[in-house]
Design a protein around this nucleic acid. Sequence first.
DNA 1: TTATATTTTTAGAGTAGTCTAAAAATTTAT
DNA 2: ATAAATTTTTAGACTACTCTAAAAATATAA
Lengths: 218, 218
Amino acid sequence: MITLAEENYLKAILSISLNEGGKVSTNAIANEIGTSAASVSDMLKKLQEKKLIKYKKYKGVELSESGQNKAINILRKHRLWETFLVNKLGFNWSEVHDVAEQLEHIQSAELIDRLDIFLEHPKFDPHGEPIPTKEGEIPSTNTTPLNELQVNTKGKIMGVSLDEKDFLDYLTKLNITIGTEITLLEKISFDKSLSIKIANTKQHISNDVAKHLLIKIS
Amino acid sequence: MITLAEENYLKAILSISLNEGGKVSTNAIANEIGTSAASVSDMLKKLQEKKLIKYKKYKGVELSESGQNKAINILRKHRLWETFLVNKLGFNWSEVHDVAEQLEHIQSAELIDRLDIFLEHPKFDPHGEPIPTKEGEIPSTNTTPLNELQVNTKGKIMGVSLDEKDFLDYLTKLNITIGTEITLLEKISFDKSLSIKIANTKQHISNDVAKHLLIKIS
DNA sequence: TTATATTTTTAGAGTAGTCTAAAAATTTAT
DNA sequence: ATAAATTTTTAGACTACTCTAAAAATATAA
Ligand SMILES: [Mn+2]
Ligand SMILES: [Mn+2]
Ligand SMILES: [Mn+2]
Ligand SMILES: [Mn+2]
């Protein structure tokens, strides 16, 4: 049996290694989960026991084959539930993450299979994030963070890499959502902020915002 | 904060008092939850602390106002989720209880409001059990258990009072479901078993089965 | 009404997960 | 290469929930 806490650790390790690659540090996990490094150390020992991770003290951690399968399945459930909440229940994309954090732990393979069918096998969640397949594939999306684009490049927003209410509500206020056409007008070297054009309106955003906007160049 | 275990205790107390009325005994709860009487005693003290129950040692327990509200809300969630699983995801009525046991603990009032709308405000769950309203009303159903009917009475099955896979699968095998017209032909005094007629076919069922079939006399 | 059986509570202990403080290991700077 | 800073682990303790065994209370029967 795998506990809810263990599931959250596996998910955190997956999330960090998808973003940063390589071994994951104790502190990175503590930071991601919002817990102490001591608790992480404790838990890593338990996950090691269960062969869900490969862990050498002080040397960082990575998911084992079975740990990775479990983690990806949780990610799949999270994103399918978010899709359900937005597409079927009419939630706003900024409102679904916290509920999905609970729903992702419901244990029933049959439920997820049927949900996937009910949603007509969605490929992306409401934030443009790819939904892992039942087989554990995470389709790679060919996108670039907005802050890495060249000036005068035109593209379309395919997704966001941050799922926090404040951030998503701010995007909505800026008329930014998935599918929005965007042109990068200018990069300010002083603070790395950007001038952009959306629907013929010029706007200014910080680098912190831009780096979480995933663009497909057109 | 209320824990998952506490929620299950409140639900068990509600369920027992709906069936039997009056104070609920420690053993009845232990039996319902499948735990020891000692654990129940422990937990009753905690629920008392939180003013969710009225409890005098050795004298049994009843829900407080706030405990009852909480318990009814869990029942509402359970039955709405079961309705979702059957009506939207195509599960069989015998397959949904265990998953609903998990889903009923998801914390989000908004989610349940929207689910209720999505399901078009269902009044009954897939087992014919009434779904409590948001205000906490449990609509009473004017039905009689089949084993309490007079011989030669005709009626319609409005619901079942037991939600176990074996039982429901057996009913399906007998062509019994909600809405089925049924006539009570004979009561065997020796073992209290019953002869019944369904769709012009004569069948024989035990008292144990009959008592969980809720009939509206026609 | 005293004895017996049943029910309920307490006592003591175990597991899972969490925390803070301190020790040990590793990395960075001088 | 040593010292200082940082990271990670261990130690010890706490909460929530669980259990078995034994004691206390209540119900039933002779
Ligand atoms: Mn999310
Ligand atoms: Mn998402
Ligand atoms: Mn049920
Ligand atoms: Mn039901």
